[in-house]
């Protein structure tokens, strides 16, 4: 998963980014002002955007409106110091999916971000079941037919993304875009390595392969 943080307090942005990377294994981009945030949001595919409201150059409300005007469905979690009814209503009406008031708890932020990403992909439950594969996004564990499977961090991230979009064809580029931050091109040929690692671990002792490769198109996770 890849998340954009638009926040002008550098240390706050850094702390959020660190939490998302370390505890959720997400790829994170940080923008320090509204203009940069809008540019990144429009030029990359994010699974969620965390948006501060008080921003230099272009304030958060404007960023939010412009993102929605451009037709993007990316879930937006707004970070605000104001929690009065009017501003919350204005936020939600402008297209925000959720909000958190400062000072917030990083654990809560993470939980809300995960929930937003799940719902954005049509998956209401934090435990994803594809055939006999079970993926728990809360404690990041994987089982197949009741057998626990140990994955590397990168393998888990690839599988998690695929599991959020079961039966859909996911291209290598899409995977790269959603698993790495802005300099993802460097990693273009490592995806195959992770996919083969995943196949080996998931299909061990099983007749049916979980991940299929559609040549020239991408990968499909199917039970």
């Amino acid at each position: 998963m890849r998340v954009l943080i638009v926040e002008d307090e550098p240390r706050l942005a850094e702390n959020i980014a660190r939490t998302l990377r370390e505890t959720a294994g997400y790829a994170v981009d940080v923008a320090a002002d509204g203009q940069e945030g809008l540019f990144l949001a429009e030029s990359n595919a994010y699974d969620a955007i965390l948006l501060d409201l008080m921003l230099p150059k272009l304030d958060g409300m404007q960023v939010l409106k412009r993102i929605r005007e451009s037709g993007q469905h990316t879930p937006v979690l707004v970070l605000t110091a104001r929690d009065d009814k009017e501003s919350v209503v204005a936020l939600l009406n402008a297209g925000a999916d959720d909000y958190l008031t400062k000072p917030f708890d990083l654990g809560e932020l993470l939980a809300r971000a995960k929930a937003l990403i799940r719902r954005g992909k049509g998956q209401p439950s934090p435990v994803l079941n594809i055939g006999d594969l079970q993926l728990n996004t809360v404690d990041r564990t994987v089982q197949r037919a009741g057998r626990p499977i140990t994955l590397t961090a990168m393998e888990y991230r690839v599988l998690e993304y695929l599991a959020h979009r079961p039966r859909a064809v996911v291209s290598k580029t899409e995977l790269l875009e959603h698993l790495y931050d802005y300099n993802w091109e460097k990693f273009s040929n490592v995806i195959e390595v992770y996919i083969s690692g995943l196949r080996r671990k998931l299909d061990a002792g099983s007749q049916q392969p979980l991940i299929r490769t559609l040549r020239g198109q991408g990968y499909v996770l199917q039970g």
């Binding site: 307090e9 240390r11 706050l12 702390n15 959020i16 660190r18 939490t19 370390e22 505890t23 008080m54 970070l79 110091a81 104001r82 008031t101 400062k102 000072p103 917030f104 708890d105 990083l106 654990g107």
Partner: peptide, 21 residues
């Protein structure tokens, strides 16, 4: 109170991310 929220949020996140692991 509003102005204090941001610096408090920064400090809180710093300490929280420190004890995460």
């Amino acid at each position: 109170a509003h102005e204090l929220k941001t610096p408090v949020a920064v400090l809180k996140s710093t300490l929280q991310s420190l004890v995460q692991r």
